[in-house]
Simulated scan of single mutants.
Amino acid sequence: MPLDWITVILLIGIGLLLIIVELIFIPGTTLVGILGFILTCIGIWIGYAALGTTAGHVILAATVLIAAVAFVYSFRSDSWSRFALKDQNRGRVNEDYQHALQVGEEGKTVSALRPQGTAIFADRHHEVQTNGEFVAPNTPIRIIKLNQNKILVEEIS
């Protein structure tokens, strides 16, 4: 009789813990959540089978109550905030690199621009892009617009 109670309490406790872990830490429906649900159901079933109908009803009601309180507490309290990733990466690619190019400057493509590729301006390679046109390699080009990290070019006719 005490072994049945210990078995039921352990199965339901481990099952509820796995369900909470699945809800908080593991996104989506995974094996952890399914295993937790199965363990909880087995614990309740053993409670009905080994301890009787009245004890089974008490176990079922207690399990539902404990699960509801645990879910509400785990989502409302700030207990999980220490596990949450709060820092944001606000850096950008090539943020420190400021090219010294000017609108109207001329260069030559190294690779084909389809519409992006590599070009040489003042003996330095730069990633450039066109307005959608394809430009063959070794073609003279001109810078028409400079954004933060984007160099827009056109073919010189």
Rank of each mutant, 00 (worst) to 15 (best):
H57R: 06
I59G: 06
L60H: 04
T63S: 15
V64H: 02
V64W: 02
L65G: 13
A67L: 15
A67H: 03
A70R: 03
Y73S: 15
Y73W: 15
F75M: 11
R76P: 00
R76Q: 11
D78H: 11
D78Q: 12
S81I: 04
R82H: 10
F83S: 06
K86R: 14
K86A: 12
D87A: 12
Q88L: 12
Q88V: 13
N89I: 09
R90K: 13
G91N: 12
G91T: 14
V93F: 11
V93I: 13
N94E: 12
Y97H: 10
Y97I: 12
Q98A: 11
Q98Y: 08
V103E: 11
E105V: 02
E105T: 06
E106K: 14
G107A: 08
K108F: 08
K108D: 04
T109R: 05
V110N: 05
A112W: 00
A112Y: 00
R114E: 12
G117F: 03
G117R: 01
G117V: 07
G117A: 09
G117H: 04
T118S: 10
T118A: 12
A119R: 01
F121I: 10
F121Q: 01
F121W: 07
A122G: 00
D123K: 10
D123E: 15
R124S: 15
H125Y: 08
H125M: 09
H126G: 00
E127K: 12
V128Y: 05
T130I: 07
N131I: 03
F134I: 11
F134D: 10
V135I: 15
A136P: 01
A136K: 08
A136H: 06
P137E: 10
P137M: 07
N138M: 09
I141T: 04
I143V: 14
I143T: 05
I143C: 06
I144H: 02
I144W: 02
I144Y: 00
K145W: 06
K145M: 06
L146E: 04
L146D: 02
L146N: 02
Q148D: 14
Q148H: 10
Q148I: 13
N149Y: 03
K150F: 03
I151E: 01
E154K: 14
E154V: 10
E154G: 08
E155D: 03
E155R: 15
S157H: 13
